[in-house]
C-alpha cells in the first residue's frame, strides 16, 4: 500500500472541497470495509482519503410513517436493523442490512458505502431499488438526486463525478397494503458474497388480492444490480397469486445476464433468480397483507 493523506472534515462543504481538489485521486471513507481492502489490494492509487464520518448530513438517520426513511451515507448497518421503526416499516432493509458481512463488519459498514461500492452483489442495493429509494448527492455544483436504480453504472462504478459525495439515501413513506422483502443465496449461512440476490416490493389494492404495482431487483447476475422492469410491470394489475409470481420470476430470469465464476455458474445463477424472486415475492405479498 502506498502513502496517502487522511483527512476528516466536519462539514459537507469542506468534504466536497477536499474531494474536488484531488479529483479521481480522492476517495471517501465511511466504514472502510471495502475501500481499505481495495487500497491494500492495489485497486486504486490515491492521494487523499476523505473520512466522511464526522459530517452531520451524512449521519442523518430518521424513520417515520409520514416522512419515510433517511439513511445518511455514514450510518452503519447495525443502526438500521436495530431500529424498531425500521423493523416495523421497512423490514426488507432489515433483511439486507443484517446480512452484510458479519457482526463486526455490520458495526462499521454503511448502506451508503455498499451503494457507492457498486458491486453487482451489493446486498442492500436490490432492496433500495425495490423500495424506490433516491440517492442524494452533493458536489462542487450543489446537490442532486438520482433514483437508486440509476446510481450504479458498472461493476465498481457509479454516478458520482469527481468531487461528489453521496449524502444519503431516502426511502419514500410506506403506504398501507405495501410490503417488501429481500433474500440472498450463499452456500454458507453467513459471511459470504451472494451467488444471486433479490429484493422486491409490492403495493396491493385495498382488497389485498390484486397487485397495483411492484418493483423487483436482482443482484450478482449482471454488471450491476438489475432493476427488472418487465418482471415488475408484469405484476401491475395482476392477481396476488402463484401464477403471477411464477410469471414475474420467469421474466426476472430473462433480465439476468450472469457470468461463470468461482461463486456460481450462469445456469445456477439464472436458476436461483427464479427461486429467489418467487420466494421474495411471497414474503413481500405476505407482508403487504399484514400477515
Amino acid at each position: 500500500m502506498q502513502e496517502f493523506e487522511y483527512v476528516a472534515p466536519t462539514s459537507l462543504e469542506d468534504a466536497v472541497k477536499l474531494m474536488a481538489e484531488k479529483g479521481p485521486k480522492a476517495k471517501a471513507l465511511a466504514g472502510g470495509t471495502d475501500i481499505l481492502i481495495q487500497l491494500r489490494g492495489g485497486r486504486y492509487q490515491i492521494d487523499r482519503l476523505v473520512d466522511v464520518k464526522n459530517i452531520p448530513e451524512l449521519n442523518q438517520f430518521s424513520c417515520s410513517q409520514s416522512d419515510g426513511l433517511t439513511i445518511g451515507a455514514s450510518v452503519q448497518n447495525y443502526k438500521i436493523y436495530e431500529s424498531s421503526e425500521v423493523q416495523r416499516l421497512y423490514p426488507a432493509m432489515v433483511d439486507c442490512a443484517s446480512l452484510v458481512g458479519g457482526i463486526q463488519v455490520q458495526g462499521r459498514a454503511t448502506v451508503g458505502g455498499n451503494l457507492c461500492n457498486a458491486a453487482p452483489s451489493g446486498d442492500t442495493i436490490p432492496t433500495l431499488i425495490a423500495e424506490s429509494a433516491q440517492a442524494l448527492i452533493a458536489g462542487p455544483n450543489g446537490q442532486r438526486t438520482v433514483p437508486v436504480e440509476e446510481f450504479c453504472t458498472g461493476p465498481g462504478r457509479n454516478q458520482l463525478a469527481d468531487g461528489e459525495l453521496l449524502v444519503s439515501v431516502n426511502l419514500p413513506p410506506v403506504k398501507p397494503n405495501y410490503g417488501a422483502a429481500f433474500l440472498r443465496f450463499i452456500p454458507r449461512n453467513e459471511m459470504d458474497i451472494a451467488v444471486a440476490n433479490c429484493g422486491a416490493s409490492v403495493q396491493l389494492d385495498e382488497s389485498r388480492q390484486k397487485i397495483v404495482s411492484a418493483k423487483i431487483a436482482i443482484g450478482s447476475v449482471g454488471p450491476t444490480v438489475i432493476y427488472c422492469i418487465e418482471a415488475s410491470n408484469s405484476l401491475a394489475g395482476a392477481d396476488a397469486n402463484e401464477a403471477s409470481i411464477e410469471a414475474a420470476a420467469a421474466a426476472a430470469q430473462k433480465a439476468a445476464s450472469p457470468i461463470n465464476d468461482m461463486r456460481g455458474t450462469v445456469e445456477q445463477r439464472i436458476h436461483l433468480v427464479g427461486v429467489l424472486t418467487k420466494r421474495v415475492l411471497r414474503i413481500a405479498i405476505s407482508r403487504a397483507k399484514g400477515e
Partner: peptide
C-alpha cells in the same frame, strides 16, 4: 477466506 468457503459457526 471469503471465497474459499470454510464453515462458520452458523453452518
Amino acid at each position: 477466506f471469503l471465497d474459499y468457503r470454510m464453515p462458520t459457526s452458523l453452518d
